[in-house]
Write a protein that binds this DNA or RNA. Structure first.
Length: 871
DNA sequence: TATTTCACG
DNA sequence: ACGTACGTGAAATAT
């Protein structure tokens, strides 16, 4: 068997893959579909052919790109889509990491390189496969050179193969004649003019008969139809030029050593890192994980001897810094209950030399080990954890000022990801791969090592991005505040909650029966699919809107139908009740602990903007807008002897907008007036303040909200149920009234486009990859996000600062009152009644002084015996 | 696991 | 001609 070589037309295959594979992005927002498709095609070919040599050729300058679908647009060349452009360097890096020979040369097309190498290979006696999406390459086919054209059909890649005889069979011309064919018919996508009036049919006829344009030219007078005869005489120069253009060079001057193209092990450690970064999970299986060797594993050492452990703690206390990771035994525990797993040991790392895993056992008790660890954090001022708050849950309170949370650092550096585990940080910041299925103790060792090794890097990167202060002064201290809040929880009356749920249950049952009656059948009202069929097909209601899967039955659609159809009104009421019962009445009840309180979690590394999020249960979306739902807040009560004080910022986001934009009109509006929506209405609609109608005020309010969300006429029109044109007029009027805001928003988007991120007043960043998208929707979304993120994010920064201030002062004065909830612009304090006045003063002071803006930060405060009363 | 709906700021 | 307001989490059904 002869040896084989595979030659790939890099850009052509990448282009094919880009349009053939649905859009994919990795956690960093990098588009990866073309790279993924390319690799799939390449692997498929390599699996089939098992070649000895492999080379990928790229054009050096590929400013434009075309695709089948664009070929119909005559002569136009679209610039390469940004999503594709950004993948070009990626595929090159990945190939390099796999040790694949890449060849590109200025002034040469990839075609010419492929042609030249294919002839060189043939002379060496190799069997050649040329992979391209481009039929031009068919001219290279011979008995030993096979042109392979991948086609993506129904998600499956099929490959068309052409040896010389296949070209003849399909096109009735030899590969060499294929050039002449092209010279006559031209190729708009390749800027080959061809002869006017000669298309594929005529050209094929001429070439099959005369075999070359030269011979055809000599017999010009015989050519049929006469149109072609005339064309070849009058435009002979064009034909000659076209032939030159269409001819692929077979003797280009390139330096090419077959030894460099020899195919080795593609599945290198380096490539594995790339595949992980790109999140090509099903391609990772191709790597033999056993080959991955991280030398650091040699430094792992398990300690079971107490004296040795004591020595390690003593040394660690004096170390410059120490990485610490808890280890739980998850072996016998279902992943679902991982939280319940038993504490099994601690990993410590203070150098490359040793990573200790101190294991609980006969000699070493859990309590002792935890105690030692807490003392270590008290002594060593730089203890690195991943998720300090979680560690505190395990070990008890720790001095957070001595901690460095790698999870939070990684979140600040890129808040768009979903995970910030030690493993992620190792991969992203250390280029260190950690195998998937390791025992718990090895995982802990890796985590401790990663913390120790990555902390200086994370610190450096935070400093480079101007977020070190934010990290040290806001995010890290906040960990302790959140830990305290979670520990404290909020008291909820289980009996009252149950009664509330039962009341809802009765009404739900009534409504159910009435709905079935009117529908004439029993169906699942909770199923949008079934409901849609009943309403829009069986009952024939008009005005249905589509979703991906069927009719939309969302509230805004049903509300329009409700006045006319009683069943729709009942469905809406049913929905409301069902929501209240399932999510709130029943849902919350399940979270009440033995102490009569709900200990929800506050997550610090979830949102893209810097806000907190609340879960298990979500205490930031307890009903308030509708009275019936609002009643549920009566079951949130303070401990005996305490009251609730609820404080919320008044329109903090608009005030931030006023400050950041520096718009004089808005700033003055805030300095003088209470009712900003009314004053906005007065200014925008040119009406005296006292004569603003309710409708005008409502409209102005919607515009104010819209501005904060990154206004669009469509969104506003939806919200106000007005035409897009009217909405656009409101917006124009608004920007005319507040020109500074218009300028600010425009500048923000422009800066986002230039730098690739936006930032808050406190320096928090949000990367903005969407802005470079060629997709209108995605780009528009990016623009709205760019306008919203700095505002929402600054508000998040401000209340975080306030929370730290409030909890610090409550602790300093050793008060019994404590912060229990945060709802984005609102804080709830469970206040010891004797401390009430002091608490009110602290709250107001700390919240108002959290930022120094050009407009005052106002706080509204209420007191009550439950959350309903205090709000 | 994905989709739809809806609660909050 | 396109089709959406920004940021979350939970429950239910459908796949």
């Amino acid at each position: 068997m002869a040896e084989k070589i595979v030659l790939i037309d890099g850009h052509s295959i990448l282009n094919r893959a880009f349009y053939g594979v649905p859009d994919l992005t990795n956690a960093d927002g990098l588009h990866t579909n073309a790279v993924y498709g390319f690799l799939n095609i390449m692997f498929k070919i390599l699996d089939q052919e098992k070649p000895e040599y492999l080379t990928v050729a790229f054009d050096v300058h590929a400013p434009t790109f075309r695709h089948e679908m664009f070929e119909e647009y005559k002569g136009t060349r679209k610039p390469m889509a940004e999503e594709l452009r950004q993948q070009v360097p990626v595929i090159k890096e990945v190939l390099q990491a796999m040790g694949v020979k890449i060849i590109e040369k200025a002034g040469l097309e990839a075609d010419d390189i492929l042609g030249t190498i294919s002839r060189m290979s043939e002379r060496r006696g190799l069997e050649v496969s040329v992979i391209s999406g481009d039929r031009d390459l068919l001219q290279l086919a011979t008995e030993h050179v096979k042109i392979r054209i991948p086609k993506t059909k129904k998600g499956q890649t099929e490959i068309e193969d052409y040896y010389a005889e296949d070209v003849l069979n399909v096109y009735q011309v030899t590969p060499t004649e294929f050039i002449d064919l092209k010279a006559l018919m031209g190729d708009t996508s390749d800027n080959i003019p061809g002869l006017p009036g000669v298309g594929e049919k005529t050209a094929t006829k001429i070439i099959t008969e005369y075999h070359s344009i030269e011979n055809a030219h000599e017999h010009a007078s015989e050519l049929k139809p006469p149109r072609a005869s005339k064309a070849i005489i009058e435009h002979w120069d064009l034909a000659v030029l076209s032939k030159t253009l269409a001819t692929i060079k077979l003797d280009a001057e390139i330096d090419y050593e077959f030894a460099d193209a020899k195919l080795g092990n593609l599945y290198t450690d380096e490539a594995y890192v790339y595949f992980q970064k790109l999140q090509f999970k099903n391609l990772l299986g191709r790597f033999e994980t056993s080959e991955l060797s991280n030398k650091i594993e040699d430094a792992f050492e398990t300690i079971t001897n107490k004296e040795k452990a004591e020595q390690i703690f003593t040394d660690a206390a004096k170390a410059e810094r120490v990485g610490i990771a808890l280890c739980k035994n998850t072996e016998d525990v279902l992943p679902l209950f991982a939280d319940l797993a038993e504490f099994a040991g601690i990993a410590l790392c203070c150098s490359d030399e040793h990573v200790y895993y101190i294991k609980t056992g006969n000699d070493i008790s859990s309590a002792w080990l935890k105690e030692q660890t807490v003392q270590l954090v008290e002594k060593n001022e730089c203890c690195i954890f991943f998720d300090v708050k979680n560690a505190m849950g395990e070990l008890g309170s720790l001095p957070v000022s001595h901690s460095f949370d790698g999870t939070i650092a990684a979140y600040l550096l890129n808040p768009l990801k979903s995970d910030y585990t030690g493993e992620d940080v190792a991969r992203e910041r250390l280029n260190l791969l950690i195998e998937d299925k390791l025992p718990d103790d090895s995982k802990a060792c890796y985590e401790a090592y990663t913390g120790w090794k990555a902390a200086p890097i994370l610190q450096e990167q935070l400093k480079e991005n101007n977020m070190w202060k934010l990290f040290v002064d806001v995010e890290m201290p906040l960990v302790e505040t959140l830990y305290d809040m979670e520990q404290c929880g909020v008291r909820v009356e289980a009996d009252e909650l149950k009664a509330y749920g039962e009341k809802l249950g009765v009404r739900i049952h009534e409504l159910e029966q009435e709905i079935y009656e009117e529908a004439g059948e029993i169906f699942n009202i909770n199923s949008p699919k079934q409901l849609g069929v009943i309403l829009f097909e069986k009952m024939g209601l008009q005005g249905g809107r589509k979703t991906k899967t069927g009719y939309s039955t969302a509230a805004d659609v049903l509300e329009k139908l409700a006045p006319e159809y009683p069943i729709v009104a009942k469905i809406l009421e049913y929905r409301q009740m069902a929501k209240l019962k399932s999510t709130y009445a029943d849902g919350l009840a399940g979270f009440i602990q033995a102490d009569g309180r709900i200990h929800g979690k506050f997550h610090q590394t979830i949102t893209a903007t810097g806000r907190l999020s609340s879960a298990e249960p979500n205490l930031q979306n307890i009903p308030v807008r509708m009275e019936l739902g609002r009643l549920i807040r009566k079951v949130f009560i303070p401990e005996d002897g305490f009251v609730f004080v609820d404080a919320d910022y008044s329109q903090i986001e608009l005030r931030i907008l006023a400050h950041c934009s520096g718009d004089d009109m808005l700033i003055n509006a805030y300095r003088q007036a209470q009712d900003i929506h009314r004053i906005t209405a007065s200014q925008v609609f040119h009406v005296p303040f006292d004569e603003v109608t309710d409708l005008q005020r409502r409209n102005a309010k919607a515009v104010n909200f819209g501005i904060v969300y990154g206004i669009s006429s469509f969104g506003l029109s939806q919200d106000l149920s007005i035409s897009r044109k009217e909405a656009a007029e409101y917006i124009d009027q608004y920007f005319l009234t507040y020109p500074g805001i218009k300028t600010f928003l425009d500048n923000t988007v422009a800066s986002a486009r230039e730098h690739g991120y936006v930032e808050t007043l406190f320096g928090r960043r949000r990367p903005m990859p969407e802005l470079k998208s060629s997709n209108y929707m995605q780009r528009s979304f990016g623009e709205r996000v760019a306008m919203n993120a700095p505002i929402q994010g600054t508000a998040a920064d401000i209340i975080k600062v306030a929370m730290i201030g409030v909890s610090r002062r409550l602790k300093e004065k050793q008060m019994k009152s404590r912060l229990v909830l945060q709802v984005h612009d609102e804080l709830l304090i469970e206040t010891y009644i004797p401390e009430l006045e002091q608490v009110e003063e602290i709250l107001k002071e700390e919240m108002e002084r959290a930022a120094d803006l050009k407009v005052p930060l106002l706080v509204d405060m209420h007191t009550g015996n439950n959350w309903y009363e205090a709000k």
